[in-house]
Amino acid sequence: MTTQKINTMKCNNTQINALLTAYLDKALTPEETIMVEAHLNNCSACLHELQEIRNIQQQIEQTPLIEPPEDAEKRFRQMLEKQSKPKKRSITITVDFSWKKIAAAIIIFLAGAATALLIQPNTETSRSSLASLENQVSQMRQVLMAALIKNDSPSDRLKAVQYAEQISKPSPEVTNILLETLNHDPSVNVRLAAANALQEFAIHKEVRTALAESLQQQSDPMLQIVLIKMLVQLHEQSVVPTLQQFSHDEETHEMVKKEAEEALTVLL
């Protein structure tokens, strides 16, 4: 029955008929639209067809989408993590060798220095040589730290940060490496260690300002809280705008917000 009905109502103007779907989708040029509308006034077959297309399109719009597997996003994130790792490894292979050499050099140097001290323990120069030894160890630590910090393994980078803490008179270079680590290291633990190490050097105004600036960049709530606590302790006023921002921003973690608001009452 249906086929007969369609046959009797067939429209012969195939050119216009072919534009009906596009007409409903509002994808026609103004000229085409005028043509189709004029045709629709006289062609009941096309009018009927238009109604059917509209029905089926409505049906499609009411059809719900199917949920993808729940862990699809997790799987994608895991792939992303894997992808971002191998690159670093290839860069650090050379560093890997060099820091071992440096470590060996330090051991040999320390052994040699110790023997030298043992051989002549009571000379007048002992005091000054001890000082110079300390100085040289400090320098060695700096070199070792600079090499280790570039390593792929977070535990090696942690070691590097710990070396930095032991350096008695850190060069601006060490401070810069630590700041760089604090702002850009992928591991939160290493960033935290860097923050702690920097606290030791906070007698310098530049370090305090840099810490305050770093707070703006950090996204990890734990690190944000540690930095806020630290800066409040140092009474660093330049952090106030950042704290105000935190307390107004809806995206801020609740704990951080609380910490920031408390800090503001102390600093202002």
């Binding site: 249906t2 596009a22 994808a27 089926i56």
Partner: peptide, 21 residues
């Protein structure tokens, strides 16, 4: 695309209303 889209919908429509009727 205008023409292809209409043909695709036409095929879908034929099957759809055949079943629905």
């Amino acid at each position: 695309i205008k023409v292809k889209m209409h043909r695709a919908i036409k095929k879908l429509r034929d099957h759809y209303f055949q079943k629905a009727d």
